[in-house]
C-alpha cells in the first residue's frame, strides 16, 4: 500500500506545500527548495532563505517536515544553505502568472540590474488593469519580499514582489 518513496515523489509532495504568506505559490515554485535527498524512508531537504531574516523560514521547515511525515517518511532532515543566494530570477513564468492572478505584481527585470543607487526603476504594471502608470508608495511592504504601489489609472493599491 505504501507508494515508493523516491526523489520525484518528494518534489511532488513539496510542490503542494504553500508559502505561508503567499499561498498561491508552493515552496518549490518560490525557489526555496534547493535539493532533495532520499534514502529509504529518510528524506533530507535543503532550503535557502528568501531573505536572511524571513520569519516564514521556520514555517517552511515545519510544513515540509509535516508534509513528508504525513506521506510515509519517518525521518526528515532540513538543511539550510545560503549559497547560491536566492533570487527572484529563479521564479518560473507559471509562478509569475499565479502571483499576478493573486493580485501581486511579479518581479520585473533581472535581479542583477535592480540594485543600483538612485537607478531609475522599471515600470511596474498594475496586476489588475495592466496600466504601467503606477507609482511606488513604499519600498518596504507587508513582508520583506514586497513593496507597496498604487495604480494611477484604476487607483487600486497593490503589492509588488521585489526583484532581488
Amino acid at each position: 500500500m505504501v507508494e515508493e518513496l523516491n526523489i520525484e515523489k518528494v518534489w511532488e509532495l513539496l510542490n503542494k506545500v504553500p508559502d505561508p504568506e503567499i499561498p498561491v505559490l508552493s515552496v518549490v515554485e518560490l525557489g526555496v527548495v534547493r535539493d532533495v535527498y532520499v534514502k529509504e524512508n529518510r528524506a533530507e531537504v535543503t532550503i535557502t532563505p528568501t531573505y536572511s531574516g524571513c520569519p516564514a523560514m521556520k514555517t517552511f521547515s515545519d510544513d515540509i517536515i509535516s508534509q513528508l511525515k504525513k506521506n510515509g517518511f519517518e525521518e526528515v532532515i532540513i538543511h539550510t544553505a545560503y549559497n547560491p543566494p536566492w533570487t527572484t530570477d529563479w521564479m518560473s513564468e507559471t509562478a509569475r502568472t499565479k502571483l499576478k492572478e493573486y493580485g501581486i505584481a511579479p518581479p520585473q527585470g533581472l535581479a542583477k540590474n535592480s540594485l543600483k543607487l538612485f537607478a531609475k526603476n522599471l515600470p511596474i504594471p498594475c496586476p489588475r488593469c495592466e496600466s504601467t502608470d503606477t507609482r511606488r508608495i513604499s519600498e518596504f511592504g507587508s513582508t520583506a519580499c514586497k513593496s507597496l504601489h498604487q495604480c494611477n489609472t484604476c487607483l487600486d493599491t497593490f503589492d509588488y514582489f521585489k526583484c532581488i
Binding site: G53, Y82, I137
Partner: peptide
C-alpha cells in the same frame, strides 16, 4: 511615517537574520 516604520523593521529583520547566520 508608517512607510519608515515598516522599512526600519524590515531592515532590522535582515540584520537579525544575518546575525543568526
Amino acid at each position: 511615517i508608517l512607510e519608515e516604520d515598516i522599512a526600519l523593521t524590515n531592515i532590522a529583520l535582515d540584520h537579525m537574520g544575518l546575525g543568526n547566520a
